[in-house]
């Protein structure tokens, strides 16, 4: 016998209303929780580039996990690898590990350690041939707890790049590719594409970042950055100049 049949009509009606009300409240609460979780996830998925000014220019305030970032360097010694390494460091700061696919066999771990990357969270992979590089990057991107994959590939077939991108999405991993600027005309599945142009300067290491591609478009597609010689801190030239001007102003005010 159903419960509704055993009670009077008014009581049954009240009970039905109560059930409907509870169901509605439960659905609303669940929806709110899901929305909150989604928002929280999206916030957590952004990885800082190591430069606040660059983060401000990017739509998610950083690089998005599950995507690729390409650094196109203007020649050897331009600092593109350093910037990619800083991003890898930030990606595995809290959890996970970074996989370095060192095809040129030139990766120097003490420099990575000096940059702040924990070597206990570093896996160095040295594939012998191009085919193995494609496979190793794919496997590393698929790993659920891999935070970043750093590689120096020259030519990437379109089909392979697409597969990498899907793997990065499934593994929620940040792919960081350091490539020569000559590959700029080639098609790319990277969500963010940055060109690194070094500038000779008297103070610190000055680089120009040209944002070639970014989701959502940008009001400004070029950024002048400086890397501090002592600390390795990356900041935009404007913000550094402003900070130094304010420091000078403060010291003058103090003297007067």
């Amino acid at each position: 016998m159903a419960l509704d049949d055993a009670v009077p009509d008014d009581a049954a009606k009240a009970m039905r209303q109560l059930r409907a009300d509870l169901a509605h409240r439960l659905a609303t609460a669940t929806k709110a929780t899901v929305t909150k979780a989604t928002v929280t996830k999206s916030v957590h998925q952004a990885v800082t580039s190591g430069c606040l000014s660059l983060d401000d220019l990017l739509p998610d305030k950083g690089f998005t996990r599950g995507t690729f970032v390409e650094w196109l360097g203007e020649g050897a010694g331009c600092g593109a690898g350093f910037l990619a390494l800083v991003a890898a460091r930030e990606a595995c700061r809290e959890d996970g590990f970074a996989v370095v696919i060192d095809t040129p066999r030139r990766f120097y771990p003490p420099a990575a350690a000096a940059c702040g990357l924990e070597l206990s969270r570093l896996l160095l992979v040295r594939p012998q041939c191009e085919k193995d590089v494609y496979w190793a990057v794919d496997q590393a991107l698929r790993c659920p707890r891999g935070s970043a994959v750093l590689a120096w590939p020259q030519h990437i077939p379109n089909r392979i790049f697409r597969r990498w991108q899907l793997s990065a999405e499934s593994g929620d991993c940040l792919g960081l590719l350091v490539r020569p600027a000559t590959v700029q005309p080639e098609p790319s599945w990277a969500e963010t594409r940055l060109r690194v142009i070094p500038r000779a300067s008297r103070n610190d290491w000055q680089l120009t970042l040209e944002i070639l591609r970014c989701r959502g478009g940008l009001h400004k597609n070029q950024l002048e950055i400086v890397i501090d010689e002592q600390t390795g801190k990356i900041q935009s030239l404007d913000s550094r100049d402003m900070a130094s001007s304010m420091a000078i102003a403060a010291s003058v005010a103090e003297k007067s």
Binding site: G81, F82, R106, Y108, P110, A112, Q230, T231, G232
Partner: peptide, 19 residues
């Protein structure tokens, strides 16, 4: 690791070593 503190700054060593 046996090394606790590195004797150089972040830009003190290159990321690519030629050997």
């Amino acid at each position: 690791s046996s090394v606790n503190r590195l004797p150089f700054s972040p830009l003190g060593r290159p990321l690519s070593l030629v050997t």
